[in-house]
């Protein structure tokens, strides 16, 4: 580094480091949080409870260890469930609660596994369990973020080096001329 004026460089360096740390923290923090503060459970439906008008009120899920958990529902609970033919139905508790009950009963009869995201015993989303979906997909997501930032940093670094060499040469030539 042949930069004579060291004051702004130190400032810039600190800001750059702070930025990298901030990005890192933001990514790390959020990656853990959106997997945690709404926990995920997968398993088969073992019980469906409806009210007088056929609307879904509660359902029970048995996971791979045999533990049965009962989930309450909120108005916002979202559904993304497939029938045996693979057609996907997307709706919410507020819109089509009775249909949700029918779909879950269908899953119960077929022993079709589902994945539930929940917080404090209330399900926020109830979706078809696809092979390792929520878990393994995170790998793809972070591959994208990793590649994007790595490429940007590499490109900026490459440009920085190039510009530094050029400026150095220009300064040298100028000093020999002047």
């Amino acid at each position: 580094m042949r930069v004579t004026n060291s004051v702004p460089r130190a400032g810039a360096l600190r800001i750059a480091l702070a930025m990298i740390v901030a990005f890192g923290v933001a990514i790390a923090h959020s990656s853990t949080s959106f997997a945690q503060d709404s926990s995920v459970a997968s398993g088969i439906v073992v019980g469906v409870e409806v009210d007088d008008s056929g609307n879904l009120t509660r359902f029970a899920l048995s996971d791979s260890t045999g533990t049965v958990t009962t989930f309450d529902l909120s108005f916002e609970t979202k559904y993304g469930l497939e029938n045996q033919a693979g057609d996907r139905w997307v709706s919410s508790q507020g819109e089509e609660s009775a249909e949700a009950a029918r779909r879950l009963r269908d899953h119960q009869e077929r022993f079709a596994p589902i994945t539930v995201s929940f917080a404090n015993g209330v399900a926020s989303s109830v979706v078809e369990r696809e092979e390792g979906k929520l878990e393994t997909n995170l790998g793809y997501l972070f591959a994208v973020f990793g590649i994007t930032w790595a490429l940007f940093f590499a490109y900026v670094l490459y440009m920085g080096t190039k510009q530094q060499v050029l400026q150095h040469e220009i300064a040298k030539l100028k000093s020999t001329l002047g």
């Binding site: 990005f23 959020s30 979706v127 997909n137």
Partner: peptide, 24 residues
């Protein structure tokens, strides 16, 4: 970008059909 990262990972809900990859 900080705001965007917050929005992407904290604020916007997970898409029901695609799950986490939709954030790509």
């Amino acid at each position: 970008m900080g705001v965007t990262l917050y929005l992407i990972f904290q604020w916007v809900p997970t898409e029901l059909n695609q799950g986490a990859v939709q954030r790509i």
